[in-house]
Design a binder for these strands. Sequence first.
DNA 1: AAACGTGGTGGAACGTGTTCCAAATTATGC
DNA 2: GCATAATTTGGAACACGTTCCACCACGTTT
Lengths: 203, 203
Amino acid sequence: MTIANPSTSDDLGSAAQRERRKRILDATYELAKSGGFDAVQMRAVAEQADVALGTLYRYFPSKIHLLVSALGRQFEDASARLNERDIPGDTQAERVLYVLKRMARGMQGDPKLTEALTRAFMFADSSVTNEIHVVGMAMTTIVTHAMHGGVPDEGALTDEDVAIARVIGDVWLSALVAWVTGRSTAAETAAHMETAVGLILRD
Amino acid sequence: MTIANPSTSDDLGSAAQRERRKRILDATYELAKSGGFDAVQMRAVAEQADVALGTLYRYFPSKIHLLVSALGRQFEDASARLNERDIPGDTQAERVLYVLKRMARGMQGDPKLTEALTRAFMFADSSVTNEIHVVGMAMTTIVTHAMHGGVPDEGALTDEDVAIARVIGDVWLSALVAWVTGRSTAAETAAHMETAVGLILRD
DNA sequence: AAACGTGGTGGAACGTGTTCCAAATTATGC
DNA sequence: GCATAATTTGGAACACGTTCCACCACGTTT
């Protein structure tokens, strides 16, 4: 018996397996984008990705793993895109708000997708630690990068920088949940983030 | 046809209805305490509360409403208990950390219960706005009360106070989710809260 | 007291996440 | 190319949230 799990193993498997994995994540993305969390039904994902239900579960042991993995891919892409350019703004607060607003705009453009991924993130238990960590690191990287104005000098990252980035990430997540669940508007969310960043990053 | 909904209407209904509602919330509490989110099964709640499944759904339209209502009761109790005494500590940060640690200790003593209620809170959509609002207000009240050292002078609440309380509440919620889902330990959570409060409340 | 209406009961039924399995297919070692 | 192992498939089956419905109980109106 092999213990290999195509979704978490470092070994990415054969080309066919990589291809299947990509098809599954693409299908997840599409369904989430058009119908949100509820529309990402395992049978529907399997069908659209053209794999059997059992195969889907072999690659991703639960709907939550599946969605969080999709979120991770999104975040890594966003992080890579943001980090290759310089961040405008004269203060840390301005730069951080710049990237947060940029991300917020992106998410508001795809509310269903955002809802699906955020819900999954909030529901993830310890079995999803690895996938979650990918997302958390990407978020922290984005914020610290903005704090430093786009200088790729990673050595300058103090513990306090990281702590600040994590706190901002926390507030952002809470605000995101409130927005996603329809308990606050986009404008309220933006205002709340401005307040929070202003409080945390007083230069 | 009557539109009355026993769970949200201001009119609490007959004594028998109030009694049923209490039995349901008690059953929810018991099940959550012993088995967490998954153990709060609607059939089990109905049976333990000695009502029919249909009746349970008449009082609480979903499992999420049910759990968030139970959370609201918990929080209001905690808030009332905390607010009737003075908060020790010389600075705002010390006092806020005092109450946060106190609450954290309470929650760590009932991890399953905390898990159930937190999960429900995170999953609640806009149909649960009212119940959520109860919890949010209680949390804000607790933090602002601690900031002011137990002085019941509500007139002294500035907008900034409330904003600060909300940011702290956000960080607390994110930390709670991480703890509940097994992604961080109690000690890490406590340390993170200390960092956050230290950053936000620099006297 | 009879009729009525409101809410409660018991239980069937449905949808979707998840598990399981035997058969078919594909990959691997020789 | 064959034997063997690993993977995929198709689909049945199960669990639990949710909906629905026919019927019952009880208080109110007349």
